[in-house]
């Protein structure tokens, strides 16, 4: 279980998170929605310790993440970055198998490569992509390689930052199914950021909406459509007018 209590983070005078409270139970799929620039990516980075929160407490299974032994802590996580963040000096398969080629999870090269190719297949990429360099791929393909890398070592907790942006509708469907499968079959805990309402409905057990630096609304995905919260309603229906200003 991941728990955030009163987490705040500012960059200079830009107060991004102003007291976030959120609980993500083990084995559940949480989807975080919210306007562009509201701090969703920063939120995930705070949990991973890539960004140090100014205040508040973040715990994983009751243990303060800031005090956790970094190596063991991070070994439990997989993360898909919004921009893919592939290592451009390494081939696609070496990116996917990064964890399997070094460190405690190290295994023989041929085996690591086979796993990488299998993960690539699961994100809809043919084995021939394995030997290309990231710069030779399209944006959507890079995103999927990033996804394959995030799941390659079968982590317990996976963060997906906009997994389907830049993908065609069919590929987006494949990815949605994959994320759902990872949660329900492998029992992973997932936090997904997305702007795609189809994805939200396909992936989420629970939904949380970040707005104004706090979690404005959270609840089971079924309740998202019927909640009377005007912010959520404006957001999920994509209305230009409402409590959320169009210019931010």
């Amino acid at each position: 279980m991941i728990e955030l209590a009163n987490v705040t983070k500012s960059f200079g005078s830009n107060h991004v998170l102003r007291g976030v409270n959120l609980i993500v139970p083990k084995g559940q799929s949480m989807v975080v929605i919210g306007g562009s620039g509201t701090g969703k990516s920063v939120l995930l980075k705070c949990v991973l310790g890539l960004v140090r929160p100014d205040q508040g407490l973040i715990t994983l299974d009751g243990q303060d993440v800031a005090k956790a032994e970094r190596e063991a802590f991070l070994a439990r996580f997989g993360m898909l970055f919004q921009g893919g963040a592939l290592f451009d000096s390494l081939k696609v398969w070496e990116n996917v198998a990064f964890r399997l080629l070094r460190g405690p999870l190290k295994r023989p090269k041929a085996e690591a490569r086979a796993i990488a190719i299998e993960k690539l297949r699961r994100v809809g990429l043919v084995p021939e992509t394995a030997d290309l360099f990231p710069a030779e791929l399209s944006g959507g393909m890079q995103k999927r390689v990033g996804l394959a890398r995030a799941i390659a070592a079968e982590p317990e907790i996976i963060f997906f930052d906009e997994p389907t942006t830049g993908l065609d509708p069919i590929m987006a469907g494949v990815i949605n199914d994959l994320i759902r499968e990872i949660v329900s079959e492998m029992g992973a805990t997932a936090i997904t950021i997305t702007h795609d309402m189809t994805s939200v409905r396909a992936i989420a057990d629970r939904v949380a909406m970040l707005h104004g630096g706090v979690i404005r609304w959270t609840g089971p995905v079924k309740e998202m459509d019927v909640t009377s919260d005007p912010y959520v309603q404006q957001f999920i229906h994509g209305r230009a007018t409402g409590p959320i200003a169009a210019v931010r």
């Binding site: 991973l48 310790g49 996580f77 592939l86 964890r99 405690p104």
Partner: peptide, 11 residues
């Protein structure tokens, strides 16, 4: 974000 990615991959 490749440096961040390195960190999350326990490197």
């Amino acid at each position: 974000e490749q440096i961040d990615a390195l960190v999350t991959l326990s490197t």
